Simulated scan of single mutants.
Amino acid sequence: MEDGAQLGVHSWSDGTNEAKDFPRDAPEHDANRTYIEDMLADDSFYWFTIYAAPADDIYWMQPDEIAQYGVLTAPVMSESPYSCPQAG
């Protein structure tokens, strides 16, 4: 992630109900919760996302939250590896 980039999260909806409307042990959570658990070693990020913002909105994570949930695989980059040199 490049310095200054933002990471946004939100819940999901089945078209009628938001994820947070289902009990924590409901099977509707299983696919997304398990995926997050497989990728990040626990499911706490999943629960964070479904309460952070509804499905039709977005919550922009703070740097401490990004670190807390371990969603980056490398430190934030101060310069983009994709930068083009300035034409002279």
Rank of each mutant, 00 (worst) to 15 (best):
M1K: 10
M1Q: 06
E2A: 15
G4A: 09
A5H: 10
A5N: 11
A5Y: 13
A5D: 15
A5T: 15
A5R: 14
Q6V: 12
Q6M: 07
H10Y: 10
W12C: 02
W12V: 04
S13P: 08
D14P: 04
T16K: 13
N17T: 00
N17E: 01
N17P: 02
N17W: 00
E18M: 01
E18W: 00
A19G: 00
A19K: 00
K20S: 05
K20D: 00
F22H: 01
F22W: 06
P23E: 11
R24D: 02
R24I: 00
D25P: 12
A26K: 10
A26S: 15
P27T: 03
E28D: 07
E28C: 04
E28T: 07
E28P: 02
H29Q: 08
D30C: 08
D30E: 14
N32G: 14
N32V: 06
R33N: 04
T34N: 14
T34W: 00
Y35F: 13
Y35C: 06
I36C: 11
E37T: 02
E37I: 02
D38C: 09
D38N: 15
D38E: 15
M39T: 07
A41G: 13
D42G: 07
D42I: 13
D42T: 03
D43G: 02
D43M: 01
S44D: 10
S44M: 05
F45I: 11
F45E: 07
Y46V: 01
Y46G: 01
W47F: 05
T49L: 01
I50S: 01
A52G: 05
A52V: 11
A53P: 07
A53S: 14
A55W: 00
A55I: 02
D57A: 15
I58E: 08
Y59F: 14
Y59I: 01
W60D: 10
W60T: 14
M61E: 07
M61N: 04
Q62Y: 13
D64M: 09
E65D: 08
I66Q: 06
I66V: 15
I66R: 12
I66W: 12
I66C: 10
A67K: 06
Q68T: 06
G70C: 08
G70P: 11
V71L: 13
T73S: 14
T73N: 09
A74T: 10
P75K: 03
P75C: 12
V76G: 05
V76F: 05
M77N: 14
M77H: 13
S78E: 13
E79N: 12
E79G: 10
S80Y: 10
S80F: 12
Y82E: 07
Y82P: 04
Y82V: 08
S83Q: 11
S83I: 05
S83N: 10
S83D: 07
C84V: 15
C84P: 04
P85K: 15
Q86G: 07
Q86V: 11
A87Y: 08
G88D: 06
G88L: 10
